[in-house]
Measured scan of single mutants.
Amino acid sequence: KSSGQLMAEWGLDDVDYLFSEEDYHTLTNYKAFSQFLRPLIAKKNPKIPMSKMMTVLGAKWREFSANNP
């Protein structure tokens, strides 16, 4: 499932962030990516359980990696 599908299924607000060329150069591993995106997700979904946060971050990382030029 996509991150958007997961968040909709769980009734969470998705984070629409348009990644720049620079993001693809600086966010080169999962740790850097999650440190960048986790606060954005948490801000829109302050009560998100950690298990769902990790699942969403994993899905967003897969999508980000697939779109990386």
Rank of each mutant, 00 (worst) to 15 (best):
N45D: 03
A8Q: 13
G58R: 15
P46H: 02
Y24F: 11
M7R: 01
Q5R: 08
L57K: 00
R38S: 13
M53D: 05
I48A: 05
S20N: 07
T28P: 07
Y30A: 04
R38L: 15
L12D: 02
A8D: 14
L18T: 10
P46Q: 04
F33P: 00
Y30S: 04
N45S: 00
I48R: 01
Y24V: 08
L18N: 15
F33K: 00
Q35L: 12
A32D: 15
Y30I: 08
M7T: 03
G11N: 09
L6V: 07
Y24H: 12
A66T: 05
S3G: 04
W10P: 02
L6T: 04
G4L: 14
I41L: 15
E22Y: 11
S2V: 06
L18W: 09
T28G: 09
S2E: 04
K1T: 07
A32S: 13
Q5G: 05
L40I: 15
L27S: 00
D14V: 00
A66G: 12
P46L: 03
F33N: 00
L27P: 00
L27I: 11
S2D: 10
D16E: 13
D13A: 15
F33T: 00
M7S: 00
E22P: 07
S2M: 11
S2K: 07
D13V: 15
Y17G: 04
A8P: 05
F33A: 00
K47G: 15
L18D: 15
M50R: 11
S20V: 11
Y30P: 07
K44S: 03
E22F: 06
N45M: 02
A32L: 13
F33W: 01
F19Q: 07
P69S: 10
W10V: 06
G4Y: 15
L6E: 04
K31Q: 12
L27Y: 09
L40W: 12
H25F: 12
Y17S: 03
S2W: 00
Y17F: 04
N45C: 06
K44P: 02
Q35C: 12
V56A: 15
S3K: 02
S20C: 09
S2Q: 07
Y30W: 10
E9L: 13
K47V: 05
L6G: 03
L6I: 14
T55A: 13
E9D: 14
T26N: 13
I41T: 12
M50V: 03
N67S: 12
N45G: 00
G4E: 14
L6P: 05
A32Y: 08
H25R: 14
T28Q: 09
Y30N: 02
S3H: 02
V15T: 11
S2A: 08
Q5M: 11
L40F: 12
M7E: 02
L12E: 02
L57G: 00
E22G: 10
Q35T: 11
S20L: 07
E9V: 07
S20R: 13
N68V: 02
D13W: 11
M7Y: 01
S20T: 15
E21G: 09
K31S: 11
S51R: 12
D16Y: 05
N45A: 02
S3D: 03
H25S: 13
D13F: 13
K60A: 14
A32F: 04
H25T: 14
D16A: 05
E21F: 06
M7F: 06
K1V: 05
M50D: 13
E21C: 02
A8G: 09
E21Q: 09
H25V: 13
T28W: 03
P46N: 04
D16H: 09
G4I: 14
F36S: 11
N67E: 11
L12I: 15
Y24N: 09
E21H: 08
S20Y: 05
D14T: 01
F33S: 02
L27R: 00
K1C: 12
G11M: 05
L6H: 04
H25L: 14
K1P: 02
L18P: 09
S3N: 08
L40H: 08
V15H: 05
D23C: 03
L27T: 01
E22L: 07
L57V: 12
D13E: 15
Y17T: 03
D23S: 10
H25G: 11
L18E: 11
Y24D: 03
D23F: 00
G58D: 10
S3W: 04
G11E: 08
E22D: 13
E21S: 11
N68S: 10
V15A: 08
L6D: 05
H25M: 15
V15Y: 04
M7D: 02
L6M: 13
D13G: 09
F33C: 00
H25P: 04
F19I: 05
G4W: 13
K31H: 12
L12T: 03
P46W: 03
W61C: 01
N45L: 04
V15M: 05
D23Y: 00
T28F: 07
E22S: 13
D13H: 14
K44G: 14
F64T: 01
D23K: 01
L12R: 01
S2T: 12
A32N: 10
G4S: 14
K60M: 12
M7L: 12
F19T: 04
G4F: 14
N45Q: 03
D16Q: 06
N45P: 00
L27F: 11
L37C: 02
T26G: 10
S20P: 02
K31N: 11
H25A: 15
K31D: 13
D16S: 05
K31E: 15
Q5C: 08
Q5I: 10
F19Y: 13
L57S: 00
L57W: 01
M53V: 08
Q5D: 09
A8S: 14
D14F: 01
D16V: 04
A8M: 14
Q35K: 09
L12K: 00
S65Y: 10
G4N: 15
S2G: 06
M50A: 15
D13C: 15
M53L: 04
Y30Q: 09
K47T: 11
M7G: 01
K31M: 09
I41Y: 02
F33V: 00
S20H: 05
W10E: 08
Q5A: 12
W10I: 07
E9T: 12
